[in-house]
Design a protein around this nucleic acid. Sequence first.
DNA 1: CCTTAAGCGAGACGGTACGTCAAGTCTTGCG
DNA 2: CGCAAGACTTGACGTACCGTCTCGCTTAAGG
Lengths: 208, 208, 208, 208
Amino acid sequence: MQSRRPAARTGRPRSAAADAAILAATREALVELGWSKLTLSDVATRAGVAKTTLYRRWAGKNELVVDAVAELFDELELPDRGSLAADIEGVVLQFAAILDRPEAKSGLMAVVAESTRDDALRARIRTSIVDRQKRLVMEGRVRAQKRGELPGDNDPAQAARSADLIFDMVAGAVVHRTLVSARPADEAWVRDLTRLLVLGLAGAARAS
Amino acid sequence: MQSRRPAARTGRPRSAAADAAILAATREALVELGWSKLTLSDVATRAGVAKTTLYRRWAGKNELVVDAVAELFDELELPDRGSLAADIEGVVLQFAAILDRPEAKSGLMAVVAESTRDDALRARIRTSIVDRQKRLVMEGRVRAQKRGELPGDNDPAQAARSADLIFDMVAGAVVHRTLVSARPADEAWVRDLTRLLVLGLAGAARAS
Amino acid sequence: MQSRRPAARTGRPRSAAADAAILAATREALVELGWSKLTLSDVATRAGVAKTTLYRRWAGKNELVVDAVAELFDELELPDRGSLAADIEGVVLQFAAILDRPEAKSGLMAVVAESTRDDALRARIRTSIVDRQKRLVMEGRVRAQKRGELPGDNDPAQAARSADLIFDMVAGAVVHRTLVSARPADEAWVRDLTRLLVLGLAGAARAS
Amino acid sequence: MQSRRPAARTGRPRSAAADAAILAATREALVELGWSKLTLSDVATRAGVAKTTLYRRWAGKNELVVDAVAELFDELELPDRGSLAADIEGVVLQFAAILDRPEAKSGLMAVVAESTRDDALRARIRTSIVDRQKRLVMEGRVRAQKRGELPGDNDPAQAARSADLIFDMVAGAVVHRTLVSARPADEAWVRDLTRLLVLGLAGAARAS
DNA sequence: CCTTAAGCGAGACGGTACGTCAAGTCTTGCG
DNA sequence: CGCAAGACTTGACGTACCGTCTCGCTTAAGG
């Protein structure tokens, strides 16, 4: 999660409790203050930790917030609800629920914005957050193929392109709905989204 | 664009040139420095204007950047390319091109992130940027209905919901592709996106 | 009092009332705010006058305050109380009373401090304020000589030196008492001061 | 000299060198710029210190200048020259020499002016500067009494009043001579001042 | 068990930007 | 041309965080 140190074997080991306290304090501060007013001094105080301890483990605000937010997405999973549409609805609702929490709202978009000028940060976001979700898309696709809801992949490259597209559309739609349009991604909306998507996929399967 | 003052007729009038210079300087600074390293002092210097002049017209960094970025979207338009799919492709490519510019990338997501904690800012974003694009969706819908590509609106409320959904999906997908996935929203990708969407709409029209 | 303009005969003449209003407003602001927090904008507002009008007549804060304070000293006079000691006591009490007013306290020392680095300002202070008081010393001396309380001036240069010394001692003592020691220059104190001074002068007269 | 903190034993200790550098830089800036153009930013730069360091130790310009000027008066002492008159002359010349230095001229009167509206500042001036000098008056008085030049104190309250008066007269005269009259408090002038004072004191002793 | 190297808290440090304020100038339109 | 109004440039203000540093103390592993 944080910078790997190459096997320091002597000296006092780092407190494991501090990490958890810091990440929790970060989320708490995100809720209360939002990204732009969050300060590392404040986080350190909340965590009952010195500023130096914090800087020893994270390079700065961006990295810290990525890790703090990433933990929120660990709870995402893909339950088997019996059909492609139901599976999608389930996972999208989970995603929307996470994104509706203020610590995710405030933090996630901000680090994405920062990542437009910081490749290392973008890589960290991808590793810690995005790829974790994309895995769900792949699993859902395989599961739907087993069920016969989607055709098998004749062309693997085409399959990857399709997965990327679906992922951008679904994740993008939820984010846009939640943050830009500022309206809730509730069950009705998710049902409409899923319906449009599944119909599109079905049409594409017929056409190909 | 900035706060309207109710017709002050006495005293020296505000320099109109300064507004343009400031917004241009803001975009320039966004390109070079990105959102988080952009400072109002620097913008003022670039614009050849005093910091106080800047604060007299905008409440802060957020408001300024919204206005600076909003001007980028003024060039969006919906050319008639003969079919719904072609129209969508055309406008999405325009949107993607704007979003690919560094001043838009850096600035837009940052103010969206800020807006999660600032209702006035969100309203400003909506007025200055979002609604301008949504108008294109409405126009495209009407045009497609005239062509017979889409059924007429039996239920206006349902039509609005549908337009909102499409807008969130398309805009969200482009944003997610560009900023999160960090891959270009090029013609091939846009064609795939459009195809999936049009098939979905067609399927929905059949089903209803 | 203010900068002399050499007979402008065309255009709208300057409002004479404005001068008085500005100086009164300056004293009022001195009372309320003190020297360092007094601003020319505020003075202009109080006087119901534009800032430009103020700058057209005074070069800056220092000059304005000198003139505003100088008017306070116009009321000083040397009443004939029948003896040197009584005359001194009378005028010193008057001086102490003026110096006790907050607009004098705040303003006078500040401009004196400024004048250590500004010869023109020092000259203005001397002309407008100091020499007006020193005249009283000279008058008192002559009057005492007429009464036979002091010997005539055999040596005019020595007489001038003596007058200067007395002036510095008396004025300096009152200022120091009032501002530095921050205790009132009341009747008892003035009587002690006068007694010491008159005894000294008498001793000097005997010794020469 | 600055605010006493009650023995903080944790954290990085304050640099002692910084204090000296800041006070020296303040005096240097007073010489070059005078009180009103002295800025704390400039002082910080001269001292090779961050502005925050300066504000951490002094509340503002006034407090800083008081301390910077106070150090100048540390060199004052009362040498035993054998007679009351000679002792007075000696110490007055020292005082005049200090007051003639531009950093004292510029700074001292300004803070006195400010102190008319700031009781804490006046107390600081009194503690750091005034009382240090007044001690010299008391010592001189005792020494003269031992020599038989002045009568013993029958009435202690009267003695204190007398000492206060002498102090205000002498210090006030030197200040007035130097700053208001703007003429040097040289040996001849100091001799005249001392003579008048000693004659007055002698007369008072005879009369009582 | 005892050295020893790192972790740790506290908080001072040099910086940079903030948003505000006052100084003094300039630009309007009105009288 | 005087004047009121108010926008303008300039530059200092005092504050807040940044990320680094210097202390003195604590803590575990390894000799």
